[in-house]
Design a protein around this nucleic acid. Structure first.
Length: 477
RNA sequence: GGCCCCAUGGUCAAGUGGUUAAGACACCGCCCUUUCACGGCGGUAACUGGGGUUCGAAUCCCCAUGGGGUCACCA
């Protein structure tokens, strides 16, 4: 059987966002599941908007997610270069071929007049397509315009009245009428090919067998099919996956808040959680299992289980998945992951002073409570920030019986204790003080942090340290 | 507006002619617990509508409706 080869071909005109990442992911999963190859190609033919910074960010985002590729930018390969602006001579060869075979022609219409015509058609509610004005220019006319210094575009000639059939792995058979497609531009006046042309040439040259991309490209496909045919290329399989929508059910875009992959990284989402979440958006595994690691997903992935309907991005579920993946981390791993966030905390100097054992107690205390890694910053404040007491809390703490209890607590409190000892100590405390549990624990908590909620008391004692416990409670005695 | 795609709870989503129509997130309740959270148990909640086809439709067909995409010298 022929080896499968897919590609992800972003244009570096912005950061990698959720939708793009999902396209990349599905390509990756498909390739890895079928022992195929993955290509990363940069489609930078939009000179105005492309930038090397975005290209770098996209690559970094993919790498962070754990998506890698066998051929392409950064890793090279036998079909390079993998940046479209570096492949202009290749496109030129095929343009010449189309020009010679009569499949394409030079067009001298200006952008202004085209925009006017398009607007008029749109208003009349007619099919918006190029008029074909320059289609039958005589060689003499063409040469004259060229001599006048007019810079032409190259258009692909579309024969109307023809049925164009797209066979799509997720959508089935989709039929288009060529009459709805006007002659379209394949080379811009700056000599750079357009997407519809370059994508066909590259996919062919690079031996792509499966084109997996977002549904917004479906209506481009008939144009590309025409080019495949004119050039005599073998047609790959297509799979158009449905879009990811925002809460407002519109295509995901910058308007929807955090949308770039890097933003998720910065907020402390784990790459394996984002990977897991994205895989579940538009695809579902056969079993019931939802929390999965990369290799499990690769093993289960198949295009036949990709849904046709668009999916709304659900942050709640991502959050839940992230918390689940955090719980799967070992203390040691989590301690490392969380450190950069703690470094930005105003209490970092305190954390820095902790010995390894105390640090791990801190991590353990916080582990079940955080959804994103950044949440540690807030959590750590419970332990280290100077407590704030509101009036209500103060009135509770200043009762005489509470004062007596706290006094007893401090008298019994050892000077030094680890987590196990703290647990035992706290457990036995009500008995030692001869008080019911509810009269003991909550006042201590309030006195220590000013808040009725937070990690279990033994954690508080260990992380805070006995001296600070004494100091915080001292004012209530 | 033309063309194209899509349509199961608030969201993700299983389901491919016969099911009490799964499961997950979110929400609500109970339990666990020295608090909150975690966790456990339970609950509310869906086949867009109308026609067909069929002994029988969430599943097949048609129409309507709704949502989305696309109509660039952007990809």
């Amino acid at each position: 059987m022929k080896q499968i080869k897919v590609r992800f071909a972003p244009s570096p005109t912005g950061p990698l966002h959720i939708g793009g990442a999902r396209s990349a992911l599905f390509n990756y999963l498909f390739a890895r599941n079928r022992q195929g190859k993955m290509v990363l190609r940069i489609e930078d033919t939009d000179l105005e908007r492309s930038s090397p910074e975005y290209e770098r960010e996209i690559i970094e985002s993919l790498s962070w997610l754990g998506i890698d590729w066998d051929e392409g930018i950064d890793v090279g390969g036998e079909n390079g270069p993998y940046r479209q602006t570096e492949r202009l001579d290749t496109y030129q060869r095929y343009v010449d071929r189309l020009l010679r075979s009569g499949h394409a022609y030079h067009c001298f219409c200006t952008e202004e007049e085209l925009a006017r015509e398009r607007q008029a058609l749109l208003e009349k509610g007619e099919i918006v397509a190029y008029s074909g004005k320059c289609r039958d220019l005589s060689p003499e006319e063409r040469d004259r315009k060229l001599r006048q210094g007019l810079v032409p575009t190259v258009r692909f000639k579309v024969v109307p009245g023809e049925e164009i059939v797209v066979h799509d792995l997720v959508r089935g058979t989709v039929t288009f009428d060529s009459s709805e497609i006007g002659d379209f531009i394949i080379v811009k006046s700056d000599g750079i090919p357009t997407y519809n042309f370059a994508v066909v040439v590259d996919d062919h040259e690079m031996g792509i067998t499966h084109v997996i991309r977002a549904e917004e490209h479906l209506s481009n496909t008939p144009r590309q099919l025409l080019i495949y045919r004119a050039l005599g290329f073998e047609i790959p399989e297509f799979a158009h996956i449905s879009l990811i929508l925002g809460k407002d059910r519109q295509k995901m875009s910058k308007r929807h808040g955090a949308t770039s992959i890097m933003q998720y990284r910065e907020s402390g989402y784990l790459p394996e959680a984002v990977f897991n979440f994205l895989a579940l958006l538009g695809w579902s595994p056969e079993g019931e299992q939802e929390i999965m690691e990369r290799d499990e997903i690769i093993g289960k992935f198949s295009l036949s289980r990709v849904a046709k309907n668009p999916a709304v991005f659900d942050l709640d579920k991502l959050n839940w998945l992230n918390a689940q993946h955090i719980k799967r981390k070992s203390m040691k791993e989590l301690g490392e992951l969380v450190r950069p966030y703690l470094e930005s905390s105003p209490y970092w100097h305190r954390v820095e002073q902790m010995d390894q054992a105390t640090y791990e107690v801190l991590i353990e205390a916080v582990r079940e409570r955080i959804v994103c890694l950044v949440d540690v910053v807030k959590e750590v404040e419970t332990f280290l920030a100077p407590p704030q007491y509101d009036a209500d809390t103060l009135s509770k703490l200043e009762k005489p019986e509470v004062r007596g209890m706290l006094k007893g607590f401090l008298e019994h409190l050892p000077e030094q204790l680890d987590l196990e000892q703290a647990r035992t100590f706290m457990k036995g405390l009500p008995k030692a003080l001869q008080l019911p549990a509810k009269q003991v624990y909550m006042p201590i908590r309030l006195g220590l942090t000013g808040s009725p909620q937070g990690p279990e008391l033994p954690y508080l004692l260990v992380v805070m340290g006995v001296p600070e416990v004494r100091q915080r409670l001292g004012r209530f005695i």
